[in-house]
Computed example of a mutant assay.
Amino acid sequence: MYYLQDQTMDAIARELRTSRSTVSRLLSTARDSGLVQIQIKTPSDRAPELERAIRKRYRVEVHVVPVSDMLGEVEVLERVSMQAARTIGPLVDSNAVIGVAWGSTVSTVSRHLTRKTTHGSTIVQLNGAGNTQTSGITYASEIVRRFGTAYGAKVEQFPVPAFFDHAETKNMMWQERSVRRILDLQDRMTIAIFGVGSMDAEIPSHVYSGGYLDSTDLDALEASGVAGDVATVFFRSDGSDDGIVLNSRSSGPDLESLRKVRRRICVVSGAKKITGLRGALAAGLVTDLILDESTARELVELSSPSNDPIFGFLNGLDGL
C-alpha cells in the first residue's frame, strides 16, 4: 500500500484500523528484514553500465555497489557486504544446502544478513579452518552460525585442517565416515557463498594472514603462478589449477566440484583482488558476482578488446 499504491501512512492506518505509529513500525520492519529494498538511481551512477559490460563479457549475474573513491577499504567492504547480504536473502529457499567458505569477506557479509524463515535448510562449512596455531573452530563456526541463525537452518561444521601436511593423510581422512558425511552434504549443495583470496589485498585474506601458509608454501604458490583462491583451493589468472601441489593437501572442494553447484555467489571488495577475481571468472567458478564500483571498473577496463592479447594479435594480422 505504501510503496506500490503510494498511499500515505495516515490513509493506510485508517484502512487497517490501526495507528499511524503502527504503520510506521511495520514499514521499518519491512526494510530491516529485507522485504523492502530501496535503491537510488542518480544520473552519474555508472553501476548499470558496468553491470551490463560484466554480464556480457563473463555471463554472470552481477551487482555493482556504487562507492566513493574517498572511502577506505574497510568502509568499502562494509558496503559491498551489505549489498551481498541483501542479494543472498531472496536466493535462499527451504530445503537448500548452502556451502559457506570462511574468510574476511564472508565474515563481514555474515554480520549483515537479515532473517528469513526457511524449513529443512542446511548451512555446511566448505573448507576446514585448523592450522598449527589454532583449531580455527571459533572463527569458522561463528560465520556459519550467523548464516544458520539468519535462515533458521541446521549448521554443519567441517572440523579438519585447512591444509594437511601430506596429501596421503587427507586421502585417508576422506575415507572416514564422519568426514564422508560432510563431503556428501557438500556434493548436494544448491548454493555456494565465497570470497576470493589474495595475498596483495589491503585487507589480507585470512588464509594468508592467519598462519595457514609458511614461507615454503608461499614460495610454491608464487612459483606456480597462483593468482588467488576460493575456499583454500588455488588457481592461476587464466583459471587453470593443474600442477598446483598445495591443492592436493587442501580441504576445500576441488574446482570441478564447485562448478557443479547451481548457484555460486562470489563477493569481492578491493581492486587489489582483481587478478584473483579474473582467475575465478576464467575458471567458471562464479554465477553471481557482487563487487564494488572501483573493482568493477578495473575489471571492465582489463577485459576491453584493447587489453586482450588475442584481439591485439588479430588486429595486427588485419593490419598486414
Rank of each mutant, 00 (worst) to 15 (best):
residue 19 S to W: 10
residue 20 R to P: 00
residue 22 T to D: 09
residue 22 T to H: 14
residue 25 R to H: 12
residue 25 R to D: 14
residue 25 R to K: 14
residue 25 R to T: 11
residue 26 L to E: 09
residue 28 S to L: 12
residue 28 S to Y: 05
residue 28 S to I: 08
residue 29 T to G: 07
residue 29 T to Q: 15
residue 29 T to H: 13
residue 30 A to V: 04
residue 30 A to W: 11
residue 31 R to P: 00
residue 31 R to W: 00
residue 31 R to M: 12
residue 31 R to Q: 15
residue 32 D to C: 00
residue 32 D to L: 15
residue 34 G to T: 09
residue 35 L to N: 14
residue 38 I to E: 15
residue 39 Q to F: 14
residue 42 T to P: 01
residue 45 D to K: 09
residue 45 D to G: 05
residue 46 R to A: 04
residue 47 A to R: 14
residue 50 L to D: 08
residue 50 L to V: 11
residue 52 R to P: 01
residue 52 R to M: 09
residue 54 I to C: 03
residue 56 K to L: 12
residue 59 R to K: 15
residue 60 V to Q: 03
residue 62 V to A: 08
residue 62 V to R: 01
residue 65 V to K: 03
residue 65 V to Q: 03
residue 65 V to C: 06
residue 65 V to N: 07
residue 67 V to S: 07
residue 67 V to N: 08
residue 67 V to M: 10
residue 68 S to A: 14
residue 69 D to K: 14
residue 69 D to G: 14
residue 71 L to E: 13
residue 74 V to M: 09
residue 75 E to D: 14
residue 75 E to Q: 13
residue 76 V to M: 08
residue 77 L to G: 02
residue 77 L to M: 13
residue 78 E to T: 08
residue 78 E to Q: 10
residue 79 R to E: 08
residue 80 V to D: 02
residue 80 V to G: 07
residue 81 S to M: 05
residue 81 S to L: 01
residue 83 Q to N: 07
residue 83 Q to G: 07
residue 85 A to M: 09
residue 85 A to N: 07
residue 86 R to M: 10
residue 89 G to A: 13
residue 90 P to F: 11
residue 90 P to M: 02
residue 91 L to K: 09
residue 92 V to R: 03
residue 93 D to P: 01
residue 97 V to D: 01
residue 97 V to G: 01
residue 98 I to S: 00
residue 98 I to C: 01
residue 99 G to L: 04
residue 102 W to C: 01
residue 102 W to R: 07
residue 105 T to Y: 04
residue 107 S to N: 11
residue 107 S to V: 00
residue 109 V to C: 06
residue 111 R to P: 02
residue 113 L to R: 03
residue 113 L to N: 00
residue 113 L to A: 01
residue 114 T to C: 11
residue 116 K to N: 05
residue 118 T to S: 14
residue 122 T to P: 00
residue 123 I to G: 01
residue 124 V to T: 05
residue 124 V to F: 09
residue 124 V to C: 04
residue 126 L to K: 03
residue 128 G to T: 02
residue 131 N to R: 10
residue 131 N to V: 10
residue 134 T to R: 14
residue 134 T to I: 08
residue 134 T to Y: 11
residue 135 S to I: 10
residue 137 I to Q: 14
residue 142 E to H: 15
residue 144 V to L: 09
residue 145 R to L: 09
residue 145 R to N: 09
residue 148 G to T: 07
residue 151 Y to L: 04
residue 151 Y to E: 00
